[in-house]
Write a protein that binds this DNA or RNA. Structure first.
Lengths: 255, 255
DNA sequence: CGTAGCTTTGAGTGTTATCAACTCTCGTGG
DNA sequence: CCACGAGAGTTGATAACACTCAAAGCTACG
């Protein structure tokens, strides 16, 4: 789309970067691996791919060929109902692994799309499984990463099943904040890479509700928001809301 | 609680049953393993444990020691919010693996409780990971089982985020039906092992809403229901509702 | 047979969806 | 340079679906 942007992202340095030199080493698959194992992993990773905003990495129903590690940017994964309703199952930042839900049936049960210009490392699955067999540390790390994905989904289940709208958004904003911080970026102020619609499809809300909540949070001094730029102003109160101790009469259930 | 029941379930035959003789062989971890590997797996599985209704297999925060394969009965796994709100993250029938969400942090992020008298096989995790390293088929099957768990959670996300109440229940009933069938039981008529409250905590609904839906489905000739006994009467219409083609004006989103 | 827990049903309320209009931003082309 | 248009975001009015509270009926078990 944008020629200028396109030229900027084709960056020799990033294409050459190997796992052992990657700044995401401690967040990604390499975690816990030694020098020789890292070299073996590098041999398996076929190429780095750049996606522009809106480009799809894989589509629902595609056969599983590779897993993908996000190197930069943000992707969303979306499930689809027959009548067109969308559920965003996750936003994926640098260091996170995509496609593991396809291992079960060798088919991707959801689509993955870049929300901004993004880079991913492609890891052919057959080769990865083979290597995991030879390198116990990699097998272990794969189990952990898959387990983490399950935990993440369960957190989202709690949000969708038992939280009201404001709790969901507060929880979501804090999650973004934490993940940005883990990447060494300022966690208090960031730019959302997804639309209100995407957020709604993630939180199980209408886009209008998301928009209203942003406005309300700002009125109440919890955040400052200007379009997609968000600045968290009162983490304590956000945490209180996200944890279910918000000022609103929550529909808690006693035992 | 019930001495008579207790005596009945301590059953020599079931305690002795090894993986290679187990009728769940094709649904559980052994899938795809040959005779010698099965014997190795049997050596790792420490003991079979019987849980009575209401008994907990593990609690939120417990350290990960073992994974558990359900041999008979039904368990539920539940996440908890600070203020007591509950989200049931899954109902687990025979052949399903419990505890894999604990691998990430070596701590169980949810609790597991028997909904009826149930048997589980305990599989010490360290030993399992060790064995998976030696037996590629087992490693592969573990990846698949974990991936399946993720897919299952994503299905639930779609339900909680984008389906209305009747779609959720229809979808849930059909899921039970399919799973009963896979176990060789009649999928059209079964007894629910969980309360309306549990179903509500799973579907993100109030227990009263679940109860009303059962009544409505019965009125409409979709099912027959008598307390916890359910008989599916019109699978086609149930499927139509679950897929979002129900007669109610669905809140579909066009692209 | 009595009690405790589970289930059903009713009435009223509220949170959030839907529909609609308007604004804002940004990139494109006249 | 400004007008234009498309897409994204905001805000308002209204309505509906599901929740809460309440009471009564049912089941199962001791």
């Amino acid at each position: 789309m944008n020629k200028k942007e396109n030229a900027k992202v084709i960056n020799i340095a990033s294409i050459k970067a190997a796992c052992k030199d990657c700044n995401l080493r401690e967040l990604c698959l390499p975690l816990g691996l030694g020098e020789p194992d890292l070299t073996a992993l590098d041999k398996v990773i076929r190429r780095r791919r750049t996606l522009r905003k809106g480009e799809q990495l894989y589509r629902l129903g595609d056969p599983l060929k590779s897993l993908y590690a996000v190197r930069s940017g943000t992707l969303k994964t979306t499930g689809l109902m027959e009548d067109g309703r969308v559920q965003v199952t996750g936003f994926h930042l640098a260091g996170e692994l995509l496609g593991i839900d396809a291992i079960n049936t060798d088919q991707h049960p959801c689509s993955a799309e870049a929300l901004e210009t993004s880079e991913v490392c492609e890891i052919p699955y057959i080769a990865l499984e083979e290597l995991a067999h030879q390198v116990p540390g990699l097998q272990h790390q794969l189990f952990r990463v898959m387990s983490r994905e399950i935990v993440e989904d369960e957190r989202l289940l709690m949000m969708l099943g038992r939280m009201n709208a404001e709790e969901r958004l507060a929880s979501c904003l804090l999650s973004f904040s934490r993940r940005h911080e883990r990447l060494g970026v300022n966690g208090a102020a960031f730019k959302l890479s997804m639309s209100r619609q995407d957020l709604g499809d993630y939180l199980g809300l209408a886009l209008e509700t998301v928009s209203r909540l942003f406005s309300r949070f700002q009125e109440e001094g919890l955040i400052e928001v200007q379009g997609r730029h968000v600045h968290l102003r009162d983490n304590d109160r956000l945490h209180a809301i996200a944890g279910g101790n918000g000022n609103s009469r929550s529909h808690a259930q006693r035992n």
